[in-house]
């Protein structure tokens, strides 16, 4: 895959925000500062990456990285059959990113998922509420400091007793 032309143009256009461009195993990865994600993705969309294949996040707590969280966008161009990975770094103190829902509607639910599981907020998202966990759920389960077995959520229910056949053996 030859995306070098695109990446040079990107670096020219956004010199301050693109931190690193790497190419490995035919995969181009862009690393950038989170705040400019909307402009970069708009640029890429106009360039032919018409399909947001996946939007997810990684908690870099023990992995190490520029910031605590990485939000990963997998873009796909149907026409040229190319993929590009865009990584936006978000800090722990201010986990806030611009929403890309205006570019792709699919980002609506995926950003809600990232919000639910990682606690990263998306600016100007139409409906940023929990999607997978119950509304009253406390904490963000996919963060590395959340225990796998939870904090007692799964034990917190009333017990429904058997009503009639109580003494059956």
């Amino acid at each position: 895959m030859d995306l070098s032309d695109l990446t040079t143009r990107l670096q020219e256009k956004f010199p301050d925000t693109v931190l690193e461009v790497s190419e490995e195993n035919d995969e181009v990865t862009l690393q950038l500062k989170g705040s400019s994600i909307l402009e970069i993705l708009s640029f890429l969309k106009a360039d032919g990456f018409n399909f947001l294949a996946d939007l997810t996040a990684v908690d870099n707590l023990t992995l190490g990285g520029n910031e605590r969280f990485t939000v990963v966008y997998h873009l796909l161009s149907h026409e040229r059959v190319e993929r590009i990975v865009v990584k936006a770094y978000v800090s722990e103190e201010k986990p806030l990113l611009p929403s890309v829902e205006s570019l792709w509607k699919t980002a609506d639910w995926q950003e809600r998922e990232v919000y639910d599981l990682f606690g990263i907020e998306f600016e100007s998202h139409p409906n940023l509420i929990r999607i997978m966990n119950p509304d009253e759920f406390n904490g963000y389960p996919l963060r590395k400091d959340f225990p796998r077995q939870g904090r007692g959520e799964r034990k917190d229910f009333p017990i429904v007793e058997r009503m009639t056949r109580g003494d059956r053996e």
């Binding site: 929990r130 997978m132 966990n133 389960p141 996919l142």
Partner: peptide, 9 residues
């Protein structure tokens, strides 16, 4: 989310 079982965790 009614079947969210924490696969990724």
């Amino acid at each position: 989310g009614y079947l969210h079982s924490g696969f990724e965790k």
